[in-house]
Each structure stands twice: as C-alpha cells, then as structure tokens.
Design a protein around this nucleic acid. Structure first.
Length: 218
DNA sequence: TTCCAGTGGT
DNA sequence: ACCACAGGAA
C-alpha cells in the first residue's frame, strides 16, 4: 500500500498547479524530440542553466538531421553547459535515430536505452513527458522526496537499483496510471520546497504524511 | 568548495 | 559498486 493516498496526491497536484515551474520552456513543447533534447542537456546540469539556451536551440534544431547538419553550431550553443563529450554522444544518438527509427525518438524503453547517452532517467522522461505514458522519473530529486516521506535512506550508488524504483512505488503507488503531472510536481516540489538542505516543510503539501517533516534531521 | 532533471566504463 | 565527466552559479 502506498504512503500517499488520494487526498495527498490531489493536494500535491493542486500545489503544482499553483506553484510549479510551468514557464520552463520544455514544458510547453512536450513532443518526444523536444523532451529528448531537453533531458539530454539536463543530466547533471541545472534546469535554470539549460532554460537559458533551450529556446533558441529547439528552434534551430527541429530534428536529428538538423543537428547532424550543423554540428559546430550545436557545440557552440551547448558548450556553456559543460561535459563537451555529451555533444558527441548526442550526435551518435541522432545518427542512430535516423538509421534505426526513421529520424523519430522511439517510445519504448528498450529502444530508448540503446541510444548513446540515454539511461533509465532519460528513457522514462521521454515516455512520461514526450509520450504521456506511465513511467516514474527516478532521479536525485524524486528519490530525495520519497526518501524523506518514507524515512527510508538510500545511497547514491543505489539510485539506479531496483531499490530506488521500489521506494518510489512504495511512496507514490504503482506506476500504472501515473501522469506526467505527478512527475513534474515531484521535480518542482524537490526544487522549491523539499530542497537538499533546509527544506521548507511548513509550506509542503505532503508534510502531513512525511516522516522527515515529523522528525527533521533524522 | 559544492552542487546540479545522469551515464558509461570498469 | 565506484569514478570521471565539465562548466557555471550559489
């Protein structure tokens, strides 16, 4: 049985409606390609930094062919994000999209994770945000929220393990029927309320069912 | 100095 | 299960 009941979920979604980062540019373009581009840049990189370059990037590069035809421009525009090797990895992924998927970003997990630079996180993000199908976003943010709510500790090394997925399911329920909104809500809650340090529990819509809120610092 | 919507290699 | 990756902002 999940920790969060229906009332808590509804409260979380209501909080997201009022306080979510709806202005993030990739939230307005929820196509598989737009999400694939955004998530590829977002790994280990702040959302606000990516948001600064994303609009011109997604306007200039509408498909994998655009990227491969203007590699220098892509590198120039994404250089400020760091991890330059990420650009080469992205080029390889674009080639694979053209060769194996008719230039489209696929919608199933097994195809997605064979793409260079795509792991469980980006695969699930494309499925949830790009295809609007049920999938948990399992990253440092959603894990932190679930960990605090349940009181169950989890290490960095375990973030890609089954334990992490079980933690999210235990906290928020089975992923069947899971909406993109809940994933966005969790990411935004983690950003503005359930921060790594000094979380703002008083303003949190989940404080009534959260272990950490009941015993901060534990 | 530390942290940030992770991934690939070992 | 660990570590490098990289630049920018707090």
């Amino acid at each position: 049985m999940a920790i969060l009941g229906k009332p808590e979920k509804e409260r979380l979604l209501a909080w997201y409606q009022d306080n979510g980062r709806h202005e993030l540019p990739w939230r307005k373009l929820q196509t598989p390609w737009a999400i694939f581009v955004a998530e590829s840049l977002l790994r280990r990189t702040k959302a606000s930094t990516v948001a600064g370059i994303y609009p011109s990037l997604i306007d200039e590069f509408r498909c994998p062919e655009d990227v491969l035809g203007k590699k220098n421009l892509w590198q120039q525009k994404t250089n400020a994000l760091g991890i330059a090797s990420r650009a080469n990895q992205f080029f390889s992924a674009c080639e694979q999209l053209i060769q194996q998927h008719q230039g489209e970003v696929p919608g199933n997990y097994n195809d997605l994770i064979t793409l260079p630079g795509v792991g469980h996180y980006i695969a699930n993000a494309v499925i949830s945000f790009g295809y609007h199908r049920p999938a948990y976003i399992i990253d440092t943010n959603t894990i932190r929220v679930a960990s605090r709510v349940t009181g169950e500790q989890i290490t960095q090394a375990e973030h890609r393990s089954k334990k992490a997925k079980r933690l999210l399911e235990h906290c928020f329920g089975d992923q069947d029927g899971l909406s993109p909104h809940l994933n966005f809500a969790l990411l935004d809650l983690a950003f503005s309320i359930c921060k790594p340090s000094k979380p703002d529990c008083n303003a949190c819509p989940l404080s009534n069912c959260c272990q950490y809120s009941a015993a901060p610092g534990s």
